[in-house]
Every structure is written in structure tokens, then in C-alpha cells.
Amino acid sequence: MRHSKPTADEIQALIDGQMHLEGPLLPILHALQEAYDHVPEAALGMIAETLNLTKAEVHGVMSFYHDFRKAPAGRHVVKICRAEACQSMGANALSDAVLEKLGIGWGGTTSDGLVTVEAVYCLGLCACAPAAMVDDRLIARADAARLEKALEGAA
């Protein structure tokens, strides 16, 4: 994950890079989050200006979607599936154990800024549940030990 400090020129370039698309707003938000791990507050006004929307409208769209963050997450993001198939294979116990060990709740980040844990609803790994994701890596038949190992490996 890249974590550079956003400059106005950079942000505008990322916005402009999506302007050839029909309905470019989601691709713009994705491009910004991809670059900065969140959508910088400073970008909202620039997006609004470019797309001829109000800043409130842009904020309204951004806040509708669970993916977009207002601030960067921890260095690593662990997503644990909470949906039914994973629950049938012990996902609740898994997430309880992970959250307790890290001392955080859903969406929380450890105080050292190392790990954020987010809920996700189905990763399409329902036949090899429970499922989780550590950064970009999918993990099936997950248990607390395998998640920990993946986190160490991701260092």
C-alpha cells in the first residue's frame, strides 16, 4: 500500500485520469483510495468542481459506500467475512478471538497503527469457509493462527 502525502496536482491528475469514463465518480473515488488508502478531504471539493456537483453531493456518494475511508487504515487491513456461510463454520468465534487479541472492535485500528480489522460480507469463498483477507491475500478455512501467520508474512 502506498502512503504518499496527497498534493493538489496529484489529486487533480487522478481525477482527470478517469474523466473519459461515463459516470466517472466511483472510478475517481477508487483511484484516490488506491493511491492514498483513503479519500482525502481536500479531494472532495476538487471532484465537485470537476464534475459540476456540490461538495455535499460528492460527500453523499462517498459516504454511501462502505469501502471509502476518510482516513488511512492501519498498515495492514484484515477483513473477516461475517456472512452466513462463514458463520456456519465458526466465523463469529474467529472474529471474536482476533478482535479480542488485538484489543479493538470492528473497524478499529490497533494503537500502534499496525492492523485494522474490517467486516466484509462474503468473499465468494463460501465452500471453504470461514474466509478472510489480509491486505490483498485471500485466506480460506481461516483460523486465528493462519491469520496471524499471514500478518507476520505481510510485515
Binding site: 472510478p27 459506500y65 471509502f68
Partner: peptide, 21 residues
Amino acid sequence: RVGAGAYVCGEETSLLNSLEG
């Protein structure tokens, strides 16, 4: 096109709104 973590966007009209930004 890629959604952004909203289950309801599987509903076709919600999907179209999302596609339009």
C-alpha cells in the same frame, strides 16, 4: 466497473445509480 462494498447495489436500479456515480 467496480462497486464499493454495498450489498444493495446488486439490486438492478441501485446498481444503475452506482454505475452513474
